[in-house]
Design a protein around this nucleic acid. Sequence first.
DNA 1: AATGAATGAGTCTTCATTCAT
DNA 2: AATGAATGAAGACTCATTCAT
Lengths: 214, 214, 214, 214
Amino acid sequence: MRSDNRRATTTDAGPTGTFTFTQRARRAQIVQAAIETLAESGYTRTTFSRISRQARLCSTGMISYHFAGKPELITEVAHTIMSQAETMLEPRLREVDTYRGKLGVFIGSTFEFASTYPTHTLALAEIVAMARDRGSTGLERVEQDILCVERLAALLEHGVRAGEFGAVDCRTMAFALRGAIDGVLCQYLRNEAVDLDRCAQELTRAFGLCAQAA
Amino acid sequence: MRSDNRRATTTDAGPTGTFTFTQRARRAQIVQAAIETLAESGYTRTTFSRISRQARLCSTGMISYHFAGKPELITEVAHTIMSQAETMLEPRLREVDTYRGKLGVFIGSTFEFASTYPTHTLALAEIVAMARDRGSTGLERVEQDILCVERLAALLEHGVRAGEFGAVDCRTMAFALRGAIDGVLCQYLRNEAVDLDRCAQELTRAFGLCAQAA
Amino acid sequence: MRSDNRRATTTDAGPTGTFTFTQRARRAQIVQAAIETLAESGYTRTTFSRISRQARLCSTGMISYHFAGKPELITEVAHTIMSQAETMLEPRLREVDTYRGKLGVFIGSTFEFASTYPTHTLALAEIVAMARDRGSTGLERVEQDILCVERLAALLEHGVRAGEFGAVDCRTMAFALRGAIDGVLCQYLRNEAVDLDRCAQELTRAFGLCAQAA
Amino acid sequence: MRSDNRRATTTDAGPTGTFTFTQRARRAQIVQAAIETLAESGYTRTTFSRISRQARLCSTGMISYHFAGKPELITEVAHTIMSQAETMLEPRLREVDTYRGKLGVFIGSTFEFASTYPTHTLALAEIVAMARDRGSTGLERVEQDILCVERLAALLEHGVRAGEFGAVDCRTMAFALRGAIDGVLCQYLRNEAVDLDRCAQELTRAFGLCAQAA
DNA sequence: AATGAATGAGTCTTCATTCAT
DNA sequence: AATGAATGAAGACTCATTCAT
């Protein structure tokens, strides 16, 4: 647990909490190392030892010093990656008017993020697996955040209301689409040749059409 | 590793190997307890001691006595569940002639299996996560068996050749469909209300149509 | 520990105790398997499991059934091998009159036993190692028996009294000779080419002469 | 395997590897405890838990923390003892010119080491037994180092060439001498009264003469 | 007389966490 | 602020021994 001697003098009341400049830098360094370790070695082998080895200038003790525990670290890793993906997605979504267009942007942007940051995507995939496991304490929140399909469901919902999509159970379709995207990315990250652009088009059409004729 | 004590006298040259009646019974009991533990506590917490507690009447040594190691146990669990799903799927596939029909049967039967055996489905999902992790040793074979989309890809391929489906990258679509199915099941297994039947229809249509109009 | 249900009906009040015909046969079979296992797999790997596998027709339970414990089994193995060596040595010793001659016979016969029964010699060597270990309970007696140099010391003593050898500390020289023999056998059993005959002559002369000129 | 936690910052590129001051101290402490345990309890009972008990202040985890595994610990123990013996032997060998003299020094110094450090000698004897066992993994290198008679064989060889010793199979004689020394030490370490000095003289003469008259 | 099955104490090892410095 | 060292609970696995049949 977080050592009591770690006190913030310069405060940073952002969403990441209250940390000094140095602390934020260290946390970022550790998070980066954790991402690389997750992507390279996989969930089970992502131990504090490996992470600290990856971030050449810290010991396992330092990780415990900067993070309240493993769940906090993993949570921060997940949020870091997700907000990065968000950064790529957000402006593109705003450029498009139709919901079908937004759907295409969503899928395409997700794929592009994966091809631009495969390490981060792999790491996030490992965390998804980790978080799905009801054995990992402290990751319940992350699980909700990661697996969250609310945004996607809302997009579909709006599209339905706008008459662009058929009347479907949007939440379920969101889960299906989320799964489909992950399935394709899984294939892609396994170094199989995948035409992500074409695939994005096909998925967009399939999920756009799926309930239209119903 | 498997205790050298345990040697079969009554042979059973089935796929389960060469075991006596009692051995098969114990193995089945342990496998069942492992399934329940996986579903209930998740992969990380599925330790020999939890499994033995679940199976009530044995110590952790007994599991080691009956299984060569953790990978063997997990492998047997996976194969048990998969062959159970296969048993449900196989005859239904044969009842249908068209590939589109077969696709619908595939999705529907997968959903029905999940609703009939949610525990087994959850357990298999945990193993999938486990197997994807590059950190787990000895599960490489299971990984291939579980994550295998060959069957699905072949079904789509045949459908394309028969002119029932559009010309798509069948392997990628198989990954997408596999992912979509898992995504919906994920929602379902999280105790959310899902109309699996309707969802099966929609997915069937979506993936059946997806490239037809191209 | 020896099961109480094992009762001798036909008695055999020999040095091996009181056993029925069947019991003696089983014990011999197990002892033989133990010898082979010791020679092949070495001390640490000589477990009841391996022994019972070597003796194809018995389970580990049977070994416990026939022997009071591991020490008893190992003890019997040692005595079996030693009495076999004795059988080869005894008549030859009687054929020679001088003590120097007897010394040569002792060394030569030991070497011949090793080349005739390398498996037994290897097994005995493993037991020697095992018995020297103060960690193996119940083998104290075996240790005394195996490492016993009384016979050799007595031979030297008689030779000294007869004026054939110089006045040495016979017991110490017996230990040295015993060690020298084992050293050479160690080399021989490691599959190195050794001219045992010539070596026997040299050792005989060396230890015969060693104190003569003193 | 060696915990990844433990990483040296202060380097020590000696034969002991790269360790900090504290690490070297702890390793030495554990090695010392292991030596005592080996000598007192014997090889089989030299478990991490006994060693840690002997070293009073550490848990078994600490041994794993400082050593990559049991083989590494045992190897370090062996090398420690052997280099200690070497330290005693080396300068004495250089003081003597004749090979016969060197032979005497070798035997005498070995005996003196044993009488000065009986615990270390006992411990090394246990490791020899351990290393001879084909069942112990990871000790192959130690086995070669410990059982190595090359040095002795070379000494004899040089003596033969210099005409000081008779023409014998030096390697075999080295094994015999090594064995003879061990045999006597075995007696000595069993608390029997042995006149090591006189014995050294006799062995030197015996092995020096052994083939001279041939 | 024999066995297959079960046991449980004990093995080495891993790892997040703590703590003195 | 940081670290190296230490901890100890928990992990999988082994094996001589016991026991009902």
